[in-house]
Design a protein around this nucleic acid. Sequence first.
DNA 1: GCCCGGACTTAACCTAGATCATTTCCCAAG
DNA 2: CTTGGGAAATGATCTAGGTTAAGTCCGGGC
Lengths: 197, 197
Amino acid sequence: MSTAHNLLLEHIGRHLSFSAAEEKRLLSLLQERSLKPKQFLHHEGEVQKSQVFVTSGCLRSYAIDHNGFEHILQFAPAGWWIADMQSLLDQAPGKLIIDAIQASTFLQISRSDLDRLYDELPGLERHFRLLLERSVVTYQNRLLDNLSLSARERYENFCKAYPSLIRELPQKQVAAYIGVTPEFLSRMLNQPATAKG
Amino acid sequence: MSTAHNLLLEHIGRHLSFSAAEEKRLLSLLQERSLKPKQFLHHEGEVQKSQVFVTSGCLRSYAIDHNGFEHILQFAPAGWWIADMQSLLDQAPGKLIIDAIQASTFLQISRSDLDRLYDELPGLERHFRLLLERSVVTYQNRLLDNLSLSARERYENFCKAYPSLIRELPQKQVAAYIGVTPEFLSRMLNQPATAKG
DNA sequence: GCCCGGACTTAACCTAGATCATTTCCCAAG
DNA sequence: CTTGGGAAATGATCTAGGTTAAGTCCGGGC
């Protein structure tokens, strides 16, 4: 069993435990793949056929608005799932782009196989239900942050939430995540915060 | 069986079918309640103990930021679930407020009962997994809209998404949902859109 | 070693939307 | 009917963050 498989089983194991047979069945439907930096997993307008569990490196999903600006929805370092979920659910062309920001490896499972597995392994459905609950909360919090915090506060939140990513990411990608222009983020970081107290 | 119960079973029935015994078991754990306009279901700082399926009227969840502004996360008309999900999952004090914007009735189920039901009725877990998937997509889209659209575009989106609500809601609540001040929304609506074409 | 392109910086200027203050409107309570 | 309080309108002014346009600073390919 590969280390990629181990990482996935370990993650699932945080919620529940599978029998050896169940683990084997799950792994049999997963495909190991990799991407080099800047290679794409999913293009705008494509139909997403499978979802992906990152085992090393880091992927990201983002959309391009009508002014050509990127807005990053998610970073997916090792241990995270990523997909254009809207496209995956509707089996319709998506508006997200997914690419690798570092050399990355991942496990892939098709939607139809996963649907089959949900019937065979109810524990897996439990696992995803729990992940989805957390995911909803995360997006709710991010939405509230965007509605109520200043750019600087959102930047500070990002640093707290992703202390490892902040070191590896180019500044412009942080800008595209927190929702400001790269120029503004640069200016902000090179100006002292307004003195307080 | 009440009409409230019927509404819930009909909604669940869109995804799957329960036996009569399963339906009975589910309904046995639901409590019928109601709220008058402006009454609260959940206050900031409280621990959310149960989640709620609205059967008539409309609830909303919102947070108050450090400037005292309300930001509405969700409207829940009949047929929608609502809760302070973060508080519910962590069983920790929440930051959301939930109240009724109209006279409303709803069915309530405690987190512990629902957890029990997930074990007894795997179909229910399926149902919520599917709802959560849609919910994630909805929040993703709303986040992208907030990052890339103008206030007017977000207003138009809102009108399309909630054509019935737009007629019933005071303008200031629409403002608190799309993320602008009531003053600005008012001015925007009374000024012609910049002519195009 | 040179050149290119992408990441970052900086500065001047611009604008969507916020803030503040005043007024009007409406309707529900007395 | 009148009153008072919230919802909306409206005008003047302000500002966080966007836009445009140079420039600098790399690192990587040839």
